[in-house]
Design a protein around this nucleic acid. Structure first.
Length: 90
DNA sequence: ATAATGACGTGAT
DNA sequence: AATCACGCCATTA
């Protein structure tokens, strides 16, 4: 395994994202707030970008502006499809 | 310790 | 509405 994000922060982020119920979405800012760092939206995004864990529905994390942001598992297109398939309004 | 990076956010233009 | 500039944060080199 490649080195994952070393740090407590990343773990918390992954854990929080893992709790996002199906059909729901959370903005990076919301996740950051959930882990206790409402201003760390940037860092959250970094964690997502380096996170390849299938148990973490990183596709449910989108921007606050309503944009999708990015996806490292097939591109934003795949991400949009997944969200739509879950019934998320984007 | 300093600089650079990036799936961000908000306010200004 | 779209774009630009600045701020914020954790991690890496």
């Amino acid at each position: 395994m490649d080195k994952q994000f070393t740090g407590n922060f990343a773990d918390k982020v992954r854990e929080a994202v893992r709790q996002i119920p199906r059909g729901k979405t959370m903005s990076y800012k919301e996740v950051a707030y959930a882990v206790g760092k409402p201003l760390a939206s940037r860092a959250v995004a970094n964690v997502m970008a380096n996170n390849y864990d299938s148990t973490v529905p990183c596709h449910r994390v989108i921007r606050s502006d309503g944009k999708l942001g990015g996806y490292n598992r097939g591109g934003i297109i795949k991400k949009r499809e997944l969200l739509l398939a879950e019934g998320c309004k984007i």
